[in-house]
Structure formats: C-alpha cells, structure tokens
C-alpha cells in the first residue's frame, strides 16, 4: 500500500502541510491546531524538526484499544480510518499511538487522524523539500539505502 513517507532530514519546519491538511479537513479555513499532520520543532535552536503523521500500522495500537471498534481499513487505499458514527471521542487511541499521530481538539468529537485524503493526500503536494511523499511502503528507508535519495 501507499503511505505518506517522511524524511525528517529534509523537513524545514514551515508547517504548510499542517495548514493544507486543516483546509482539507475543515473545508474552507486554516487552523494548524485542527490538522492530522503535525511538525514538531525541538532543540535548543529549533534544529530538530520532525513531521508526525499516521503510519497506518498493520497491528495498530489505536485500533486495538478502541473500546467501540471504530477503526476500519479503507478498501481502496488501505488507510486506517475512524468511523465517525461509532467513535465516542474518548481519546484512548491518541493516548496509545506510539507516535502521537492522533490529535484531539476541544471543538470536535472525533479525533483528527490522517485518512490519506481518500488516496490523494493534499499535504504532499505543498511540500517543496519533499520531506513527505506519497509512495509504496516498501520505499520506506529507501533514502537511507540509496545515496541518490539525499
């Protein structure tokens, strides 16, 4: 399956992906606090920059702990999706995700989590340094194996 692959060495922390994601999720506005992808900037001079987005795990902790079995796999994209009707908004999935890739917000009952935009993720189209790309998962680690990947 295709996933959003992250190369954190290329990320410059502009956070455009967050804004674009929020536009996609909200329809007509921008709000980085309501995005499914997040860029975490840490370090003394903000030099450690990491984009965090759902990895659509095969043995997903979030789905495992969900008390109402709200997670399902999209037949077309393979994305792990939250069923908005079943979900009770308890936040257990966000707590269990090893990457912190599930985000809650006061104004919403359902968590924000990447759904791959139905197979055509908008964020990657705005990432100029190609720190996030939408590729087959067997390409994970490719940039580390292949010199040209840098």
């Amino acid at each position: 399956m295709k996933k959003i692959l992250v190369n954190k060495d290329k990320c410059s922390g502009c956070k455009i992906c967050e804004s674009v994601c929020s536009y996609q999720k909200l329809g007509d506005k921008f709000n980085r606090r309501k995005a499914a992808i997040r860029v975490v900037i840490e370090g003394e001079l903000g030099e450690k920059i990491t984009p965090i987005v759902c990895r659509h795990c095969k043995k997903a902790k979030c789905a495992e702990v969900c008390p109402v079995d709200a997670f399902y796999e999209d037949q077309n994209t393979g994305a792990l999706i939250i069923d908005k009707v079943k979900c009770i908004g308890c936040g257990l999935c966000a707590e269990e995700c090893p990457f912190g890739a599930i985000n809650l917000h006061d104004e919403f009952e359902i968590p924000f989590k990447c759904d791959l935009c139905g197979g055509d993720p908008l964020c990657i189209k705005y990432c100029v340094p190609n720190a996030i790309v939408y590729e087959e998962e067997h390409r994970i680690g490719a940039s580390k194996r292949e010199r040209s990947g840098n």
Partner: peptide, 25 residues
C-alpha cells in the same frame, strides 16, 4: 492560539500558493 483563520477565497489561496511554489522552484 486555537482559532480558525478565515480568508475570503480559500480555494484560490490554495491554488495560488501551489502555482507560486512551482514558479519559485
């Protein structure tokens, strides 16, 4: 802050930015 940022024509802002990025590259 947590507030939404509304613009008059969000779709155009998106298209404009994408075109401009291509030009900038």
């Amino acid at each position: 802050g947590d507030r939404d940022i509304n613009v008059a024509q969000p779709k155009r802002v998106l298209e404009y930015t994408r075109d401009t990025f291509e030009e900038m590259k």
